[in-house]
């Protein structure tokens, strides 16, 4: 049997990755027999998909430009006063 370091990646549930969750979600919208057809929230689903797939560059950019962002916020706050 294959040995892989994906018991579950660090934040992807192996065998239940975000793509599969999305497909499952679409299925539940299509077939309303399940007990979970409602109350999932397409917004949550899409936002999480975004974070899983392109979350790393978003996180890197937000950290890299954090000092700039903080300075900008301070400057704007000063201007408002």
């Amino acid at each position: 049997m294959k040995q892989r370091k994906t018991t579950t990646g660090n934040f992807q549930i192996s065998g239940m990755e975000q793509g599969r969750i999305m497909r499952g979600y679409m299925r539940t919208r299509m077939i309303r027999f399940g007990n979970f057809g409602d109350g999932v929230g397409a917004g949550n689903m899409l936002k999480l998909a975004l974070l899983h797939w392109v979350g790393y560059p978003i996180a890197w950019l937000s950290l890299r430009f954090e000092p700039f962002y903080i300075r900008l916020r301070r400057r704007l706050a000063r201007l408002r006063h």
Binding site: M1, K2, Q3, R4, K5, T6, T7, T8, G9, N10, F11, I13, S14, G15, M16
Partner: peptide, 23 residues
């Protein structure tokens, strides 16, 4: 399920059947 996920050294190479059992 997210909180159950193994992190850092807990995340070892495993048999795929182990993963099925875990997840």
């Amino acid at each position: 399920h997210q909180l159950m996920l193994p992190l850092e050294a807990e995340n070892q190479p495993r048999d795929t059947l182990y993963t099925d059992g875990y997840n």
